[in-house]
Design a protein around this nucleic acid. Structure first.
Lengths: 218, 218, 218, 218
DNA sequence: TATGAATGAGCGTTCATTCAT
DNA sequence: CATGAATGAACGCTCATTCAT
């Protein structure tokens, strides 16, 4: 028998093991298609342990949500640490995001791509987790423009609009990144900064794009 | 029997009725949490009819996927019809997208936000549906820059990068839009154009954003 | 294969079959120890049918409770039909009870002997079923004494006390009866009437038993 | 650690503590719905202790059964101690019963109202416990009638019939008593003696109640 | 003496799917 | 064209019981 003898582990360790596995499985299958059986088996324990420590499938999923949200927020905050110019702070944030997704793709999927299939109870928790992430970005944006001499009248609306644009773009680009494995988080960041930095300034400065005049008939 | 006798309807009509309901239900519940029972009941027919016409739950979902993808692609194509300048074509495409989501939110959700919970068979179909949409946008982008005197050497990579950015931003902004019901598709489009048009030109022209020099020590 | 081909039966018939079996199983095992699996198997159908028709294990048990309570109350009422003197009405009621228990022992067990293990939801239903039976007896008692020239001041309390005595005695005697199979419902009734008729008159007439004086010391 | 450290207690004490709790829990929930987890927690010890001392859930229940039966039998015997006339001995026994139920309702429930849900092994034990109680009452009845000049030919059958009547009535009256909290064991006893004493004499003397003649037609 | 860690087995429930009419 | 009747298979969850310390 090559089977590993299950060693008795203290609760905290087992709990993290379970959550580690659960994030992977939830990410791969989605909430409903994931089965507690599979999670338990991959974690090398029996089902009742999962229930003993995490209460229910819902509880397990929420634990995953919370941990991954905390990790991502921590990544943001760590990245901005000590960076002074707003431009560079945004860059650092984006780089942190792309690094996080590179290294914790499952975590990001669990956090961001399960809205449709969740029970009301979980949906609330998920919304809050996503709001926490979005808030970090919004802060980055708002602080950025404020410090860089932007208009004081910057509204919440505009900042949130920009944040949604950036997060959505970044999220979508994780797919692109998956198809271009050579691309590093640094490269992604440079590309995306290039694409949005100027536009962001436009929006936050209140400049408005207007349709060009129709070309003169030849 | 006061109950209304269902009239016997030709197959095509019934099929569309079923798909209409199914899109709503799949959108609200997600693929796994949606039950064929509920769909049949809301469609006012018995379960075996669903299987007679759509083969299986998977078949039903795929039918939904295809129809909504077709509708969205058609919306893009209709919007670009007769519009000459690339800038305006992009604008028209975005406006079509936001209109589609405003009016067919369920369709968009089914198309775009169920990646995680799908069986392999469906996932392939879904990926293709999304690729079809992404291809439309990529074409818009590529054509745009080509006509507007952009570099001939424009790589597929860059165009796809930009397309991912735009689609991701637009997708994410549907959430923002849902929280700001006063905003019209036209308004959304102007805001987003403002944010990305210049950056897109930068990227496609090969200009690169570089980190600013560190501020001089005080 | 001697296995009987399951015939397709209309809902009402199947429902009664299921309840028939369920009463037997609940009676033998008690609510918690009874398994829906066993009930389904003995009924010759699959588990989902039970849930389709009876909603849940609780629903199934409540259906049993209701049907048996109705049957017993009907037996009481049928027995009293056309009997004029109160004494004979009580006798008829008791005879009906003993007949019911002889022929539907399981029904009586389900009705009367499961108080301890029921969920709050079911306990309420069970209490009501038992109250319905007790009410029949109380009426019998009250009507009896009233017509036979008993005191007008007969209180609800006394009538219920007597009813409890009679029902409790009769219930307990079903055990005795089970150990004396030769005894007929008629015989049981005569024995029990003999035992309680006079005492009942005493109680309802307000006569009170008093401890006899201590025997004179020798 | 503000938590009180459980003191190590000698086996006998712990055992009684566990049984105390178990009687309460079994009474409230019924045998199957009661969980060893709950009992252990309420007893303030860990589950393995329960198994160490009582072997199994069955063993625990049987221990409860035995202790409560012993207590009730002791109560009967203590009550009859030194009472000479049979009438008063019966009265004393009934009073002891009602007192016991007033003070140990849980014990009585465990003893008497769980027939339906017990495993064969336990059912036998429970039947024996109930028989022990019934035997006490039967003795009371038999002794009573014998001493008071009743017929020598008194059969076991009759005595047991009477005992069943009395025990069943008394049991059922515990419900009535629960709804009339003002009633004391003494009051219950007087009421019940009033109701059954004469009838009991009738039965044991061999007198038979006969249906009255039909009323003359008017 | 005492317990935290762990599990095999089973139960209530649901769901996609099919059969017979 | 249309459906009421029926089920195999799986899933979430719990429980009595034991092991290792």
């Amino acid at each position: 028998m090559t089977e590993k003898r299950r060693r008795r582990l203290p609760r905290q360790v087992r709990e993290q093991q379970i959550i580690d596995v659960a994030v992977r499985v939830f990410s791969k299958r989605g909430y409903h298609a994931a089965s507690v059986d599979e999670i338990a088996e991959l974690a090398g324990i029996s089902k009742p342990m999962v229930y003993l420590y995490l209460e229910s499938k819902e509880g397990l999923f929420i634990a995953c949500l919370r941990r991954e949200a905390e990790r991502l927020v921590a990544a943001f905050q760590g990245a901005a640490q000590g960076v002074v110019t707003p431009e560079l702070r945004l860059r650092a944030g984006l780089r942190a995001f792309f690094s996080f997704v590179s290294e914790h793709r499952d975590g990001w999927v669990v956090l961001h791509r399960h809205a449709a299939e969740l029970s009301e109870a979980i949906a609330a928790e998920a919304a809050q987790a996503r709001r926490a992430v979005m808030a970090e970005v919004t802060d980055l944006v708002r602080a950025g423009i404020a410090e860089s001499g932007g208009p004081a009248r910057l509204g919440d609306e505009d900042a949130e609009f920009v944040a949604h644009t950036i997060v959505g773009a970044a999220d979508s680009l994780t797919d692109w990144m998956a198809e271009h494995p050579a691309e590093s988080p640094d490269g992604m960041t440079r590309r995306l900064m290039n694409m949005i930095w100027v536009g962001m300034r436009n929006v936050l400065d209140g400049e408005t794009w207007t349709p060009p005049p129709p070309p003169p008939p030849s």
